[in-house]
Amino acid sequence: MILLVINGAPRSLDLPEDFPLLWALRDILGLMGTKFGCGIAQCGACTVHVDGVAVRACITEVGSVAGSRITTIEAMADTPIGTALQSAWLELDVVQCGYCQAGQIMSAGALLAENPAPDDVAIDAAMAGNICRCATYQRIRAAIKLASRQPQADRRHQ
C-alpha cells in the first residue's frame, strides 16, 4: 500500500512502487484534469505540484512521492494564485482546444509561487516544458502577467 496525499486528502493505493502518478490520478483516483500527452516528460500536459514544485506526473513513480503533498488542477481554485490564474485565463480567452491548459496553469502556478512578478525571460524558462499544440503561447504569457498584476506587453523583441 502506498499513501499519497492528494489535494489535501490522504489516499492509500494498492499499486507497485513504479506505477506512474499520472495513471494513478487518472485511472485509479478518477482525477482526469491531469492529462496524458507524451509519457516521456516532453509535453507538460501531466504537470502537477509535488510539495509545491511542478513535476511531470507521467514519469513520477508513486513510490517516490509517498507522503508528499500532491496538488492537481482540480484543487488549484483553492489557492489565491490558482484563482488568479484561472480568471486571467478566462479573461484573455486563452483556451483553444484546452487539452494542454491544465498543465500550463500548473506550471504557471509553480512559477508565481516562486516569483510573484516574472518577466518574459522567467516566463520562457518556466513554461518551455509545456507544449501547446494550438499555440496559445501569446495569451498564456499575457495571462501570467495579468494574474501577477503586470503590464501584458511582450517585451522580448523590442
Partner: peptide, 19 residues
C-alpha cells in the same frame, strides 16, 4: 467578443475531453 463556452470547465480540469 465572447469567451469559449467550455473554458471555465477546462481551467478547473473538469473531465470533458474524449480521453
Amino acid at each position: 467578443s465572447r469567451r469559449g463556452v467550455d473554458s471555465a470547465r477546462i481551467v478547473r480540469g473538469e473531465p470533458i475531453f474524449g480521453i
